[in-house]
Each structure stands twice: as C-alpha cells, then as structure tokens.
Simulated scan of single mutants.
Amino acid sequence: MALSWRARRRLALLLLLVGMPAYVIVAVTVMSLLDRPHWAVELAIYVGLGVLWALPFRFVFKGVGREDPDA
C-alpha cells in the first residue's frame, strides 16, 4: 500500500524532528566509544553515516517538497 502525499509529508517531518537527532546521538556515542581516529577518517565515517541514514527513507522524502498532486 502506497503512502499518500500527506502521510509521506508527516512521516518525513517526524523522521527529521525525531529520527535524525536520535541517529546523531547514537552515531556520536558509538564514535566516542572508539579511539579517536585521524580527522579525515572521522569525517569520512560521519559523512558515510549521514548518507546511510537517508537511504532507507528516500521513498518518504521523494516528492514531499512539491505541491500535492491530488489537489
């Protein structure tokens, strides 16, 4: 069952307001448990984690910034 535009918009907002900060906290906590790597490696890890966070939810964010197609 496909999500409606309105449902995708609400889910995207929920993911950005709740999911993303929670993911950032988890990522920083895990990185703090490890020995601090070189700054370039650390930056690459954070960039990689940032991209990996968005991949599963790209269907939710797709088309949310456009006008409602059903209106």
Rank of each mutant, 00 (worst) to 15 (best):
R10E: 11
R10L: 14
R10W: 13
R10A: 13
L11T: 08
L11A: 12
L11S: 03
A12N: 04
L13I: 03
L14C: 09
L14A: 15
L15D: 01
L15F: 06
L15W: 02
L15G: 06
L16K: 04
L17F: 10
L17V: 13
G19Y: 01
M20F: 15
M20H: 08
M20C: 08
M20N: 02
P21F: 05
P21Y: 05
P21H: 08
P21Q: 05
P21G: 04
A22W: 11
A22G: 12
A22V: 14
V24G: 04
I25N: 02
I25P: 00
I25Q: 09
V26T: 08
V26E: 10
A27Y: 01
V28S: 06
T29P: 00
T29R: 10
V30N: 03
V30H: 04
V30T: 06
M31H: 08
M31L: 15
S32H: 10
L33F: 13
D35R: 13
D35K: 09
D35L: 09
D35C: 00
R36T: 13
R36Y: 07
R36H: 10
R36L: 09
R36N: 06
R36S: 13
P37F: 05
H38K: 10
H38A: 15
W39A: 12
W39Q: 06
A40E: 09
A40W: 11
A40Q: 12
V41M: 10
V41W: 11
V41D: 07
V41K: 04
L43K: 05
L43T: 15
A44Q: 04
A44Y: 03
A44P: 04
A44D: 06
I45T: 12
I45E: 08
Y46Q: 10
V47D: 02
V47N: 01
G48I: 05
G48D: 05
G48C: 10
G48N: 05
G48K: 06
L49M: 14
L49A: 15
L49H: 06
L49W: 04
L49R: 09
L49T: 03
G50R: 07
G50S: 11
V51P: 00
V51N: 02
L52F: 13
W53L: 06
W53M: 04
W53S: 02
A54P: 00
A54N: 08
L55D: 02
L55M: 14
L55I: 15
F57L: 09
F57T: 07
F57M: 06
R58S: 11
R58D: 09
R58T: 13
R58L: 14
F59H: 14
V60C: 02
V60K: 01
